[in-house]
Design a protein around this nucleic acid. Structure first.
Lengths: 194, 194
DNA sequence: CACGGAATTCATCATGCGTTGAATTTAGGC
DNA sequence: GCCTAAATTCAACGCATGATGAATTCCGTG
C-alpha cells in the first residue's frame, strides 16, 4: 500500500486538479516561502504529477501569481474601515485588519505574500505596488493626510502580524483580538488624525 | 584577462580570507536571503574557492550563524535607551533604533536577520530568542510593564524597518530620521508608559 | 633546513530543482 | 460512434547547489 501507481491519461469524472493545485500552492508558499516551496512538493500535496502544474500554469512564477492574488478586495476593506465616525477610525482599522488575518482560510495566503515580500525583490514589488496604489494613494486622498502618516499606520499593522504570525513572539502570538485592538487603536487613531 | 587562474596551495603573505568570507556572506545573506545566497556566490564575492568556505565554517548553516551574530550588544543598546528621563524614553528608543539601522555597515546584517526570520523557521527562532530573552524579558522587568506593551513597541519598530528597508515603500523609504522620530516617539512613549 | 600544520584549489558526487515533449486516457460536440 | 481537445502521467534534460576528499603551496617552529 505505498503509491497508488496511477496510469497516465485523463481521470474519469469531473476534475478538481486545478483548484487542488492552487490550494496546495497557497499552503506551501505560505509555509515555506517562494523558493523552498517546490513545484514537486506542491504537486505531491495536490496528489498530482508535477508536469500537470506546468500544464495549467505555465511556470512557477505564474503559479505564484495565480495563488497569491490578493484574497481581499481593497475596496471592501476600505469601505469597512471608513464606514463610521472618524473619531473611531483607528479602532475599526485595527479590528478589520486583525480579523482578516485571523481567518484560517486566508492566513496562508497572507503569510505567503508577507514571506515573499521579505524574501524576493519580486515579492517585495508585489506588496509595494499593492500598499502604494490600492491603499496609500486612495486613503491619503480620502482623508487628506500626509502619506507618511498612513505609512506609519501600515507599518504598525505589518509589524504586529510579523511578530504574531511569522516570528510568533509571546505574548503577542497568543494575544486576543480585543487586547490588540485596545493597544493599537489609539496609535492608529493618532496617525490618522494628522 | 579573464580569470587570474590561481594555483592551489596557500597564498603568500597574511591571509584575510576568513574575514573576507564573513563580509561577503553578510552582504549576500542580506541582499538575497539565506537560500538564494549560495556558497558559490559568497566565495566568488570573497575571491576564494567555494571549498575554502567549508574548510573554515563547516557548513552553510554554521557560516550563517557566524555571519549573522547580532552586531550590536543588547546591553549597550538598552543602556542608551534607558539613560535619561522616563518621559522621553519613546524618543530615545526610536532614535537609537533608527540610527543603528541606518549605519550602512550594519544594515546588511540586520536585513539578513530580518529576511531569514521571515523566511525560515530557524531564522524566526533566532529572532524570537533574541527579542524574547535579550529585550522583552529585561526591559519588562526594568520598567515594570506588561510584556504585551513591549511587544507592541517592538512591532512598531519592526514594521517601520520592513516598510523602509525591505519593501521600500515611499514615502517611508526616503523619510529622514527626524521625521520618523517625530512620528514614532509618541507611539512608543504610550506603549512604554503602561 | 626539515617538517607538521594551515590555507587553498581542483575535481567530483549526489540531490533536487524547473522545465519540456511525447505518450496515454477520458470528456464532449457533431 | 467519431474525433478533437483537454487532462494526466512518464521519462528525461540541464542546471545549480551543498558537500567531500585529495592534492598543492606556504607559514612557523625546532
Amino acid at each position: 500500500m505505498t503509491a497508488p501507481a496511477r496510469r497516465p491519461g485523463r481521470r474519469p469524472g469531473p476534475s478538481s486538479s486545478r483548484d487542488d493545485i492552487l490550494a496546495a500552492a497557497r499552503v506551501l508558499f505560505g509555509e515555506r516561502g517562494y523558493d523552498k516551496a517546490s513545484i514537486r512538493a506542491i504537486a505531491r500535496e495536490a496528489g498530482v504529477d508535477p508536469a500537470l502544474v506546468h500544464h495549467f500554469f505555465g511556470s512557477k512564477e505564474e503559479l505564484f501569481a495565480s495563488a497569491m492574488e490578493f484574497p481581499v478586495d481593497p475596496a471592501v476593506f476600505l469601505g469597512q474601515v471608513m464606514a463610521g465616525p472618524r473619531s473611531q477610525i483607528g479602532e475599526r482599522l485595527a479590528r478589520t485588519f486583525l480579523r482578516i488575518w485571523s481567518d484560517p482560510r486566508l492566513r496562508p495566503q497572507f503569510v505567503g505574500i508577507f514571506r515573499s515580500a521579505a524574501t524576493t525583490e519580486q515579492g517585495a514589488a508585489l506588496l509595494r505596488e499593492f500598499v502604494t496604489r490600492a491603499i496609500l494613494a486612495r486613503v491619503a486622498e480620502a482623508l487628506g493626510l500626509p502619506p507618511l502618516n498612513l505609512a506609519a499606520a501600515a507599518s504598525q499593522m505589518l509589524g504586529v502580524v510579523m511578530l504574531k504570525y511569522i516570528v510568533q513572539v509571546e505574548p503577542m502570538a497568543s494575544a486576543t483580538e480585543d487586547e490588540l485592538v485596545a493597544l493599537l487603536a489609539p496609535t492608529l487613531q493618532r496617525y490618522l488624525e494628522g
